[in-house]
Computed example of a mutant assay.
Amino acid sequence: MTRVLRLGTRASALATTQSGHVADMVRALGHEVELVLVSTEGDVNRAPLAQMGGTGVFVSALRDALLDGTVDFAVHSLKDLPTTPQDGITLAAIPQREDVRDVIVSRDGLALADLPAGATVGTGSPRRAAQIKALGLGLEVVGVRGNVDTRIGKVTSGELDAVVLAHAGMNRLGRDAEVSEALDPSVMLPAPGQGALAIECRSDDTGLVEILGELDHAHTRAAVVCERQVLATLEAGCSAPLGALAEVVDADNGAELRVRAVALSHDGTVVVRNEAAGPPDDPRGLGARLGSAMLADGAAALMEANA
């Protein structure tokens, strides 16, 4: 009897859409897949993510389902994944990344810089909030939680003037037409791993590790490993909001991995930026070097400022 692979996913429209794309990729390899819905702490607890500890609130229940055999593999938004590996679980594949940028959805389709002073902009992300404040546009940043419909609904109802969302999610949901502006990374650096998906399974399920490995995209993995190492290095000495983006580009001597990152105080008044480049085959080393340089440049002091 053919094994039906059980794919664990959160129940939101975006999560099931993302998982559906991965299921189709696995089916294209000749395997049957069924989706299994798993409720996570981040789905049922409406408190701000920072109050829940932030990292792992959308992931731990899916990992528990993997380890207890309820599901065979799971799909996460990679930016939700803790930087510390979990025993018994393998990050089997990181498919090719979607658009990494953040976007504005606003009333009247206004770009971020065209919003009037005092306009309200909703986001639940300290990273987005700090970078908006650092622009000095006089905007009021308001905390929001909820799915894409809930957040955009706050704009259409007039409760907020704009919200910030991930372009990748809007694209995957087929809602790109609602985007008012895609923010260039020079204006707002994305979260480490933004736009990428993580496919995990049990480490001892070697056959499935091999199957899922066919979905891995080498350049995307190099980029997000580098970004997440910047995050891991800074987490050791800095609790500040952080953005990071790495890309594999063509250079004179062949492919090169380039990474840029920013750490900020929550009010956006202190900003530490840096960038680095190196070979794509050592993304972890490059990310660690950049993170260490940022700590030396003043990011370490942000830990006390953000306490």
Results as ranks from 00 to 15, higher is better:
residue 125 S to C: 12
residue 244 A to I: 09
residue 182 A to T: 00
residue 201 C to M: 06
residue 153 G to P: 03
residue 205 D to E: 12
residue 203 S to D: 13
residue 108 D to R: 14
residue 59 V to I: 14
residue 41 E to P: 01
residue 200 E to F: 01
residue 10 R to W: 03
residue 50 A to D: 14
residue 166 A to C: 10
residue 223 A to G: 05
residue 73 F to M: 01
residue 9 T to A: 12
residue 240 A to P: 01
residue 60 S to W: 14
residue 229 Q to M: 05
residue 38 V to A: 04
residue 13 A to M: 07
residue 19 S to M: 13
residue 86 Q to Y: 09
residue 256 E to H: 09
residue 180 S to C: 06
residue 283 P to S: 02
residue 158 G to A: 08
residue 115 L to R: 10
residue 236 A to V: 09
residue 110 L to A: 08
residue 135 L to W: 02
residue 73 F to N: 06
residue 113 A to P: 08
residue 60 S to C: 08
residue 117 A to C: 01
residue 173 L to Y: 05
residue 134 A to C: 06
residue 297 D to C: 10
residue 27 R to F: 01
residue 245 L to P: 05
residue 49 L to C: 09
residue 305 A to T: 12
residue 75 V to R: 05
residue 209 V to F: 05
residue 29 L to C: 07
residue 297 D to S: 08
residue 84 T to Y: 04
residue 43 D to S: 03
residue 99 D to H: 11
residue 59 V to S: 01
residue 118 G to S: 07
residue 128 R to P: 01
residue 222 A to P: 01
residue 136 G to H: 13
residue 38 V to G: 09
residue 270 V to T: 13
residue 67 L to T: 08
residue 257 L to A: 13
residue 255 A to E: 15
residue 195 G to V: 00
residue 228 R to W: 05
residue 51 Q to F: 10
residue 235 E to D: 15
residue 208 L to Q: 04
residue 264 L to W: 00
residue 122 G to S: 15
residue 239 S to C: 13
residue 46 R to F: 11
residue 237 G to D: 04
residue 251 A to R: 15
residue 249 V to S: 10
residue 263 A to I: 00
residue 109 G to H: 15
residue 122 G to K: 07
residue 259 V to H: 14
residue 197 L to S: 12
residue 127 R to K: 10
residue 135 L to H: 11
residue 25 M to T: 09
residue 48 P to A: 11
residue 14 L to F: 05
residue 161 D to F: 03
residue 107 R to P: 08
residue 188 M to C: 11
residue 203 S to F: 06
residue 184 D to H: 14
residue 4 V to I: 15
residue 64 D to G: 08
residue 257 L to D: 03
residue 301 A to N: 13
residue 13 A to K: 06
residue 228 R to C: 02
residue 49 L to K: 13
residue 201 C to T: 14
residue 235 E to Q: 05
residue 221 R to Q: 11
residue 51 Q to E: 15
residue 176 D to G: 10
residue 91 L to D: 05
residue 115 L to T: 02
residue 136 G to N: 06
residue 111 A to D: 14
residue 254 G to P: 03
residue 219 H to P: 00
residue 11 A to V: 09
residue 154 K to N: 06
residue 10 R to P: 03
residue 293 A to G: 01
residue 261 A to T: 04
residue 303 M to N: 15
residue 86 Q to E: 14
residue 294 M to L: 12
residue 181 E to V: 03
residue 16 T to D: 04
residue 172 R to H: 10
residue 264 L to E: 10
residue 169 G to P: 05
residue 105 V to Y: 04
residue 284 R to Y: 02
residue 168 A to T: 04
residue 33 V to H: 07
residue 253 N to V: 10
residue 299 A to V: 11
residue 125 S to F: 07
residue 148 V to K: 10
residue 295 L to K: 11
residue 64 D to Y: 02
residue 73 F to Q: 04
residue 183 L to Q: 08
residue 163 V to Q: 08
residue 282 D to V: 08
residue 243 G to H: 07
residue 91 L to Y: 00
residue 92 A to S: 14
residue 220 T to D: 06
residue 226 C to P: 12
residue 87 D to G: 14
residue 98 E to W: 11
residue 14 L to C: 04
residue 175 R to C: 01
residue 127 R to W: 10
residue 81 L to W: 06
residue 155 V to W: 09
residue 26 V to A: 15
residue 51 Q to M: 07
residue 243 G to L: 03
residue 228 R to K: 15
residue 224 V to Q: 02
residue 20 G to F: 12
residue 296 A to R: 15
